[in-house]
Structure formats: structure tokens, C-alpha cells
Amino acid sequence: MEMIKTVDLHKSFGDLHVLTGVNETIHKGEVVSIIGPSGGGKSTFLRCLNLLETPEKGHIFFDGVEITGKKVDIDLHRQKMGMVFQQFNVFPHLTVEENITLAPKMLKKKTAAEASEMAKDLLNRVGLLEKLNEMPGNLSGGQKQRLAIVRALAMEPDVMLFDEPTSALDPEMVGEVLDVIKGLVSTGMTSVIVTHEMRFAEEISDRVLFIADGNILEEGTPEQIFHNPTHPRLQEFLRKVL
């Protein structure tokens, strides 16, 4: 079943043509990693999927609905698309628990008691239960990112979008975050992950996309992408990073 489909997606920042007509389909339950050089359009592509960036041209379908269409309430669809950012973006003025419960309570998905119960459950899953009443300012980077992940999960999304979730972390904290993501994808959560962690991408992905120069230059299973790359740009990229 198609979860997200993009058709001829174009995006420019000024004169810079960042996406040059991307066509891609993400299926339900699929774990897709996106790799590629900086400035190639990976993050922009991901951020277009929940319309944090508005594409100039092209269509995006989410669960069969065209969210790039007019008169679409994007807020409603975003509730079903969790997103995790490179810079965590946890809410510093709310406690750890409130970070998680804010959206489900505000958007009337849960009562206060249900939301609180779920927050504890989620925090327990990522080993942060004892931080329930802490302010995020007192958490380490890895803890903040784990909080950001469960905050997104609290909306019970159909798909999770990860935008370089470990790039801003100190090296010793990368593992704890990757473990949480691994645990999550093993539950069958549809995930799209922009990452520089090649080994991680190889290990967890069903499919890998190589994006450079504004488009998907090669895609395939981790085995194909990492061990039998055909596109010269991908071969060059892997030589540099591996």
C-alpha cells in the first residue's frame, strides 16, 4: 500500500534549484534511508513530505490524499506524520512530560489522564521515565533526541520522518538514539530517514535512496546501494564516506 507518493517534485531557493522533479513512493511498513552529499536535496525532500517546505511544482500524496492540493488542512495530515529534527527542537519551556502530552491534549486526541499515561509508557520505552518532571534544558543531547522521538510518537503517526537525527549529537550519544530508532522500525513503523550513518542505514533499511544534485540518482536495497553501486556519483560518494 502506498503511504507517501511524490510526483515531479520541484523546489528552489532563489536561483538554486534544490529538487528537480523527484518521483518516489514510500510504502506502508517500509524503512527508507536517504543518503547523499550535503546540499544535494535530501533534507529538502524530507521536509517537503510534510510541507515544512512548500514545493513550487509537483504533487504529494499521503495515504491517498493529495496534500499539495488546495483546501487541504495540512495540520490534520501532519498529525499523522511524525518528524524528528537534527536540532531536537524540544520545547524548553515545558517539562519532559508536557513536551509529550501537549499536542495530543491540544488536538483532542487524548484526555489529560490518557496522555499522561501514554507519556510515562513512552518514556519508559526509551529509558527516560525518571526525567518525567525535568526541564529539557537539563537533558543531554541524546536524551533530548529520544524525547523528541517519543513526542512525535505520542501523536500515533502513520509515518516517521527523521532529518539527520544524530548529526548534532556528541559521538558517544549517537548509539542510544540509533538504538531507539532501530527499536521503532522493528515494530513496523513506516520510516524515512535522512542520515550520514552509512552502517546504520545499511543495517535497518529496506530500501536506500541516493539523492544528489536535486534528484534520486540511484535507489535500491542496501546490498545494491552499498556493495554494487552503479551511478558514478554514488560510487564517488561512497568512496569518500566509507
Binding site: 515544512l52 495540520d75 501532519r78 498529525q79 518528524m83 529534527f85 536540532q87 527542537n89 488536538l107 501523536m155
Partner: peptide, 13 residues
């Protein structure tokens, strides 16, 4: 930080 807005909007607010 603009990321605060993005995070909130990404949750559906």
C-alpha cells in the same frame, strides 16, 4: 528558534 515552530507545526498544531 525557527525549529520550535517547525516542531510544533510538524505535530499538527
Amino acid at each position: 528558534d525557527k525549529g520550535q515552530t517547525e516542531a510544533a507545526r510538524s505535530l499538527g498544531l
